[in-house]
């Protein structure tokens, strides 16, 4: 660590990042926390004062239902991504070495493609006159188009579709690092395939699994445009609710309270994970 005398370069490098994040990350977040405790204003968005009114609103069964549904959809999305993504990541992580870069690149391309465009592509697939319905009718399997679009199922499908690469990439990274000799050693010591998977492969790829689940679950809660486009008016998620408070309902304190609650819930989950990981590490040491 260099602690030599202050010089201009050092001052610019440390100062610019510090102040930028101070102004554009710390202050705005602090303001949101403040706003969430302030009463809603008549002419302005907020009035000076201190109230728990907005947090009280959260207990309304209607909003609790939204919270519950959002977490449920995000969880479902995460599980589906994991179930689809793990075997897939395992296959490409164990593919011949010279093929791997290409196979990964093929996952990265959708990951770099606009998620809005991909959500829209999903819409083309699922619509009443969409590709799936048209195909099914043409095949004579159904006579009336199925109602696929504007359902919670469509939202989950859209989220899985947009977020799958976020699951696959970290999984791939941890699977590729896995030492084949460890698997061979487990088999050599008499472990069956399933035991090897459970006792060796899963624990060793845990960092990838956790990273992947985070990368899917967290955006899954906030990507309101996916539920907006694919779920129609029927599916309201936390993201939609927050967005509405700020951009149409103009209830900033309530929107802020929602946002603070969402952030705290996520922080709690992260913290629970860190604690669990630390416990697991201690167990290994003991």
């Amino acid at each position: 660590m260099t602690r030599s005398r202050s010089n201009p370069f050092r001052r610019v490098a440390t100062g610019s990042i510090f102040w930028w994040l101070f102004i554009f990350a710390l202050i705005p977040n602090a303001m949101v926390v403040m706003v969430s405790f302030m009463p809603r204003g008549e002419t302005e968005f907020v009035e000076l004062g201190l109230t728990l009114e907005s947090y009280g609103k959260l207990l309304d069964p209607l909003y609790l239902q939204v919270f519950w549904e959002s977490f449920w959809l995000a969880t479902l999305t995460t599980l589906l991504c994991l179930v689809i993504g793990y075997p897939f990541a395992y296959i490409i992580g164990r593919a011949p070495r010279h093929l791997r870069p290409l196979l990964v690149l093929l996952v990265i391309i959708p990951f770099w493609t606009s998620s809005l465009v991909r959500t829209y592509a999903m819409m083309i697939l699922l619509g009443t006159q969409g590709v799936i319905n048209t195909a099914l009718i043409a095949l004579g399997l159904i006579t009336e188009p199925l109602e696929l679009l504007f359902t919670p199922g469509a939202v989950v499908a859209g989220l899985v579709y947009t977020l799958l690469p976020f699951m696959v990439l970290p999984l791939y990274a941890s699977i590729e690092k896995l030492d084949v000799r460890l698997i061979e050693a487990a088999r050599d010591l008499g472990a069956r395939k399933l035991t090897t998977f459970r006792k060796v492969i899963i624990p060793l790829t845990m960092p990838g699994i956790v990273a992947g689940c985070m990368l899917v679950f967290l955006p899954g809660l906030g990507m309101y445009y996916v539920s907006d486009i694919l779920g129609g008016a029927k599916t309201t998620l936390i993201g939609n609710l927050i967005q509405r408070q700020f951009l149409s309902a103009r209830d900033w304190p309530f929107g802020s309270a929602l946002s603070v609650t969402l952030t705290l819930t996520m922080a709690l989950m992260l913290w629970a994970y860190v604690v669990a990981a630390r416990r697991a590490a201690q167990k290994v040491e003991a």
């Binding site: 977040n29 949101v32 309101y224 967005q243 802020s256 946002s259 969402l262």
Partner: peptide
């Protein structure tokens, strides 16, 4: 933090 939280802040 979710984009929405950053956006509103």
């Amino acid at each position: 933090s979710p984009e929405i939280v950053m956006g509103l802040s």
